[in-house]
Design a protein around this nucleic acid. Structure first.
Lengths: 350, 350
DNA sequence: CTGAAAGCGCTTACAG
DNA sequence: CTGAAAGCGCTTACAG
C-alpha cells in the first residue's frame, strides 16, 4: 500500500553505512562510536546507549571484515562435513550452528562429498581464516592437517578421534558402545555374532568393532565374523547383505557400524536373502538417528550422547575463542544407552 | 620421523604472509604483486607467472577480507536452510556448495531450525555482506525481505515461489506435478482421492494441491479430501494418519505433499489404522529422495528435476556475480517424471 | 607494463 | 572518558 519505498529502484548495492556516517550523525568521533560496540571498551554508559540506540535506528552494523583485519579474529568457525547424507550429521550441523551462534561465532560450512576434495575444502576454508575448524566425520589428510598447523588454526574433531596430539576431539566412547552391544546380544542368547564394518580408516568404525569383538571373545564366543561394507551408507549396508548370505553357519546377531548402514543391511537381508528380522537374525545399529525409531525400521541401537558431545564441543570452541591458546585434549563420553526396539529378540530356548 | 617442523611450538596464530612480504621477497612493488592475482589486470605474463609461482612456494594467498573491503564483493553466497531434517535438502546443499565453488563462490550456511529464528539467520547473514542469498524451502518474512532489499542483496528462492517481484526463483512446476499424480491415480481406477497437506504458507504445498484437486475435479471426481498435516515432516505425516482414519468413505488414493510426509503417513496408516498399502489404499509422494527407493518404503513419487534446478540456480548466481544487476525472474521446470513403485496399484476390477 | 599513493571501514595505542 | 592519528592487508586510479 505504502509508496514510501520503491522497491526495485536503484538496483545496485546501496553503499552501506559506516562508522563515519554514524559518528557524523551523532556529532562524535569514530573512536567513540567504535568503542560503543566493544563490551570491554572504556566508554560512558550513557554514550554507549546513545550510540547503540541510534545505530539500531539507522541500521548501522560494524563491518566484520574491516574489524577482523585489525583484530585478527573473524568469529568464523569452519565446519567441514564429508558425509552429509548420513542423517546423523544434518541434525548435528543444525544444532552446532545454533549453539555456536549463541557464543557469537558464525558457521561457515564446507561440504566435501568425495573423499578426494576434502583437502580442497579445508584449503578454501583456511583462506577465510576461521578462528577454528570443526571436522565432522572425516579423517583429515596429513597435508590438510599440516596446513591447519601452519596457519595456527585450532581443530576440533567431532565424533572422530584425532591421531595427532595437536587437535581437540570429542567422541562417544565407542569401545564401551561395542562392548555393550556384545553384552546385550549374548545376554539374550545369541551365540554367533557378526560385525558389519564401515570406513576402515574411521576411528568410530574401528573402536566399535574392537569393543564388540573383544567382549564377545572375553565371554567365550568365537570371534565375530567381520563383513567389510567399506562405507557408512545405506547402499554399503545393502550390498553387505550378500556377503552376509555367503557366511558359513549363519550368525544370529549382527552389529552394524551405524544406523544408516544397519537400515541398508536389513533391507538387503530381507530383500536379497529373504530372511526375517528378528526371527532369523537380530540386528543392532549405532547412533539412534530419528529414523531408527520409525516403525518401518524400529531398529535396536546404541544412542550417541549427542547432547553431551555438542555441549563439550561448544565449550571447547568458547575457550578457544577467548583464550588464544589451550592444551588440546580428547574427550570420550560414554554412550547414552542401548535402545531396544523390534530388530532384536531373546533367543534363549522358550 | 622428520624433525624439521616442530608442531605445537608457538601455539598462537602465526602472522600470515602479506603482499608486502611477497613483494619484498620478489623485489617488486605491492601493486604488481596484487595484479598478478587478478586475471583481468594488465601485467606482463612473465611477471605474473613469477609472482604466482613464488606465492605458491611460500604459501601466500590474498586476504579475502582486505580485498572485499575495496571491491565491495565478498564471493560469499549465503545459503539459508530452514528444513534440514528433510533429506531433500542435505543433497541439494552439498551439490549447490560444490557447483558454486566451481564458479569461485563460497557458501556460508545458516541453518534456521525454528521458523522464528529465520529472520535472525538472515540478519546475521547480511552482516557478512554475501554477494547473494539463496533461500531453500522457507518463506522469508517481509521484514527479512526488506532488509535484503535495503542492503541490495539479490535473493534466489530455490524450490519456493517468491511472491514479490524482486527475487529470483527456481522451482519445479508443482501444478503440473499435482495434475500428473491425479491422472496417474485416476488412470489406475482410483475414485476417491485425498491430499495430505504440509505447510499452508508454502507455495510447493499449495501448488501441488491445486494441480491435484483441479485435475481430479476436471476429470469428474469429487474434490479430494484435504488433511492438514501442517509441516513437511515424518511426524506430521504420521499424525495425519489418524485424521485420515476419521474420514467418511475411505479414500483409495492419497497424494502427500512430499516424500518424507508420505513415509510418515504410511507408517501411521499401517501402525495406527492397521491398513495395508497398496491393498487398502495407494500413496504417492513428491521429490523422489533417495529413501523413497529403499525397499522398506518403495514409494511411488514424482521426481523433482533437481539437476535442472541446480543448473539454473548456479547460472543465475554466475550472472549475479558478474553483472551486478539483472532483471529478476522465476523459472518453473517441469517434474522429471512419476516413478512407480510399490505403494500404488491398479484398482480396476480384475 | 610498473610503482607510489590514497583509501576501503574499522580498532587501538597514545594524548589529553 | 574522548578524540586525532596510525595502521590492518589489500586494490586501483594516476603517473610514468
Amino acid at each position: 500500500m505504502s509508496t514510501r519505498d520503491a522497491p526495485g529502484r536503484d538496483k545496485g548495492r546501496k553503499p552501506r553505512l559506516t562508522v563515519k556516517d554514524l559518528a557524523r550523525d551523532l556529532g562524535m568521533s569514530v573512536s567513540t562510536v567504535s568503542r560503543a560496540f566493544h563490551p570491554h571498551a572504556i566508554i560512558a554508559q550513557q554514550t554507549r546507549d546513545l550510540v547503540l540506540a541510534r545505530a539500531a535506528e539507522i541500521g548501522y552494523r560494524p563491518n566484520p571484515f574491516a574489524r577482523s583485519l585489525i583484530t585478527k579474529r573473524t568469529s568464523i568457525v569452519g565446519l567441514v562435513v564429508s558425509d552429509i547424507t548420513n542423517p546423523f550429521y544434518p541434525e548435528v550441523v543444525t544444532r552446532l550452528t545454533e549453539d555456536l551462534r549463541a557464543i557469537d561465532m558464525n558457521v561457515m560450512l564446507v561440504a566435501a562429498s568425495a573423499s578426494g576434495d576434502i583437502d580442497d575444502a579445508v584449503r578454501l576454508l583456511l583462506t577465510y581464516q576461521p578462528d577454528m575448524a570443526i571436522i565432522l566425520a572425516s579423517t583429515l589428510s596429513s597435508a590438510a592437517r599440516r596446513e591447519c598447523g601452519e596457519t595456527g588454526t585450532p581443530v576440533i574433531f567431532f565424533n572422530r578421534l584425532s591421531n595427532d596430539g595437536n587437535s581437540f576431539g570429542v567422541t562417544c566412547d565407542n569401545l564401551i558402545g561395542g562392548a555393550q552391544v556384545a553384552d546385550f546380544l549374548i545376554d539374550r542368547g545369541h551365540r554367533r555374532l557378526a560385525y558389519v564394518a564401515a570406513r576402515p580408516d574411521a576411528s568410530t568404525n574401528l573402536e566399535r568393532r574392537t569393543g564388540f569383538v573383544e567382549r564377545a571373545v572375553a565371554r567365550g564366543l568365537d570371534a565375530p565374523a567381520c563383513i567389510e561394507a567399506g562405507l557408512f551408507s545405506y547402499e554399503a549396508g545393502y550390498a553387505a547383505a550378500s556377503a552376509f548370505g555367503a557366511l558359513g553357519p549363519r550368525p544370529d546377531g549382527v552389529f552394524c557400524a551405524n544406523d544408516i548402514l544397519a537400515i541398508g543391511f536389513m533391507d538387503g537381508v530381507r530383500r536379497e536373502l529373504g530372511l526375517s528380522i528378528p526371527e532369523d537374525l537380530s540386528v543392532v545399529g549405532f547412533d539412534d538417528i530419528a529414523m531408527a525409531a520409525w516403525p518401518s525400521h524400529a531398529l535396536t541401537t546404541v544412542r550417541q550422547p549427542v547432547d553431551a558431545m555438542l555441549k563439550s564441543t561448544v565449550e571447547i570452541a568458547r575457550k578457544l575463542a577467548t583464550h588464544a591458546t589451550a592444551e588440546p585434549f580428547v574427550q570420550r563420553i560414554p554412550p547414552a544407552g542401548l535402545v531396544e526396539r523390534q530388530t532384536t529378540r531373546d533367543r534363549h530356548a522358550p
